[in-house]
Amino acid sequence: MLHEPTIALPTNEELACRAQRGCATSFEELVRRFQTPVLHFLRQWNSANDAEDVLQETLVRAYTQLNRYKPQCRFSTWLFTIARRMSINHGRLLRPQGGQQTIHSLASSASSPLEMLVEKESRQCLWSTASRILCEEEQTALWLHYVEGMSVREIAAILERSLVSVKTMMFRARKRLLPLVRDMEPEGRRLETVLEVSNV
């Protein structure tokens, strides 16, 4: 039985090293790989058009600052660090801290039936709700961990926090979101019940 030889694709870090030596094709491949995930990440805090602008600025910055990339670190960590900073520089991540807004205040914010309907639909999207009740760091930590699959150590590097701080951050974020998940369940547990249990 013949086995066709498999061609191993270069890793992101190998492509970055080639790009550092002046290989534009390698960086173009990196753009192809990271264009969608970085855009997806940036859309949490930006409109579609703004997210594309920030994405472009992020990749331009990454290309011009390639000399600062160290191959012993993951390229994704480095690139998401730039993306987050670029988004912060645009002033679009800055918003009231999530800890100031409670679940009950979310529930009571609508006044008219139409607003209640819109809010109900909005609350069906967990990430949309998370963006309202979590601070930027908490949401970023959750996104990078559960969507991008990054380790706590990598997230700590991106957020410039300690490992313990990131773990605590994620624990608090999960604790805030957990009642909402129960509330969104089709069979619908009572929110108060979930709150009581989660407080135990």
């Binding site: 753009v31 264009q35 997806h40 472009q56 331009v60 990430w127």
Partner: peptide, 26 residues
């Protein structure tokens, strides 16, 4: 909610990246 890959956006980004810009040497 993951967006699809956009060839137009890719072309736009690559055009901006490689337009008169050179990576700094390590």
């Amino acid at each position: 909610s993951r967006p699809d890959f956009s060839a137009a956006l890719h072309a736009r980004v690559c055009g901006a990246v490689f337009a008169d810009k050179q990576p700094m040497l390590p």
